[in-house]
Amino acid sequence: MSKRDFYDILGVTKSASADEIKKAYRKLAIKYHPDKNPGDKAAEEKFKEAAEAYEILSNPEKKQRYDQFGHAGMGGAGGGGGQYGGSMNMEDIFSQFGDIFGGGGSPFDSFFGGGQRGGGRRVVKGSNLRIKVKLTLEEISNGTEKKIKVNKQISCKSCNGTGAKDKSSVSTCGTCGGSGAVRKVTNTILGQMQTTATCPNCNGSGQQITAKCNSCHGDGVVRGEETITINIPAGVSDGMQLSMSGKGNAAPNGGIPGDLIILIEEIPHETLKREGNNVVYDLHLNFVDAALGMSVEVPTIDGKAKIKIEPGTQSGKLLRLKGKGIPEVNSYHRGDQIIHINIWTPKALNAEERAILEKLRDSSNFKPQPGKNDKSFFERMKEYFE
C-alpha cells in the first residue's frame, strides 16, 4: 500500500509555517494518543503516522528533499515501510518529540496531568553516520540494491546494550528514585518555583550499574561491522542525500540508534553525458555519410538503438530518442536521449582523396547555403532542454 502524503496526514499545506506544522502534529498526537485510546490499534497507527510526518516536515533539510522527490527521495534508501520514521516505537516518539508538549516522556501526560511515561527517563540517541555510494548511470536509471559493510558502533551482544554485567547488576538510581529527573524548588518574589532537570547521577536513565559488562565496559556499545542493504530509487542524482532511520551508530545504554545518511556519487559514463534527466551523446560522422544518409547504431543507457541519418544532415543537428533518458524520482516521467551530430573533417588526405575533393570544391552543391530555418547550435540546445 502506498504511503499517504505527509501534508495530508497533518492537514496542512506545503506553504505551512513551522509553527503551523507543530500545532497540527500536537493536535493529532493528543487525539490519537494511546493513553486516550487504550487497545485501539487504528488510533496507535495514526499516532505513529502523525509522528512520522512531523519528523520529516519539522526538519528543513528533510522537508526540502520530500518536497522535491516525495517518499522515494526520503526513504528509497531504506526499502519497504517505516524507513524514516515509521519504524519508531512509542519511546522513540516520546523521546524525540516530547519537547513540543513541554513535558517529559508522554505528550498526553503533559495535557491531562498523568505520570511521566518511562518515569521521564532521558533516552539518548546515537550519532548519525555518513557514507558515499558510487553509482553508474545504468544503476541510476534503473534503481539498484547495494549491500554496504559499515564500520560503526553496534549494541553490545554480551549485555544487550545495557552496559551491565548481568540483570542483577542494575539498580534503581538513589538520587532520582528511578525517575531520571530531579526537582528543585526555589523561593522567588512570586512565590515558590519548581524546576525539573536531568538527574546528574544517572544522566536521566533512572538506573545505576553496580557491575559493568566486561565486553563494553559499561557503555552498552562496541565497535563492529554491519552489512546494510540499501535500496536506491531510480533517478537519483549526484550529491543527493538519502537517509535510513536507525542505521547509524548505536546509542549507549539501549538508546535510539542514529541515522545513516547516504550521499550519492555518480560515476561518469564512458560515452553518455547526463544533463538533468536527459542524456547527451556526441555522434561523429564523416561528411560522406552525412551527405548520403545512413543508418547507425548508437549507445543508450539500456543498450543499442538504431537511428536513421537523413541525407544532407548538417553538423550540430540534434536528434531526440524519446524516453531514453533518466527517470524522475518518484515519477513515471522519463527524460530523453539527445544525439548531437558532429561532422568529422579528415585531418590528412592522400593524393587520390585530395584529387577527388579538388574536383568537388567548385561544385554548387558544396557551397554553404544555410537557410533561414537553420537554427544555431545554441538555439537548438535551448529548445531541447527547455
Rank of each mutant, 00 (worst) to 15 (best):
S58Y: 01
A50H: 01
S215A: 10
S363F: 13
Y281N: 05
Q241D: 07
K31S: 04
G115Y: 04
Q68H: 08
G118E: 09
Q337E: 13
D282G: 04
Y7D: 06
G325F: 02
F6W: 09
G143H: 11
G103A: 12
G204P: 04
V236K: 00
N365E: 12
I326D: 03
G218N: 07
E226Y: 13
E145L: 15
S58P: 02
I189E: 14
A291L: 11
C216S: 01
Q192G: 09
V279W: 15
N214R: 11
G118C: 05
G75T: 10
R121F: 00
P200L: 12
P107S: 07
E328K: 15
K125Y: 10
L10I: 09
F378Q: 14
A351N: 08
N330S: 13
S376Y: 01
M381I: 10
E145F: 15
N89L: 07
Q369A: 10
T195S: 13
D92C: 11
Q153I: 08
K273E: 14
M1T: 13
S331Q: 06
G335E: 00
G98H: 06
Y25T: 06
G11P: 01
A24P: 00
D289Y: 12
S155K: 15
G104Q: 08
Y32A: 03
V123R: 12
S155E: 14
Y84T: 08
D362R: 15
G248P: 01
V296F: 06
D40C: 03
E310D: 12
Q64E: 15
V182G: 02
G82E: 01
E270S: 09
G180L: 02
L272V: 03
K14F: 00
I261F: 01
K27F: 06
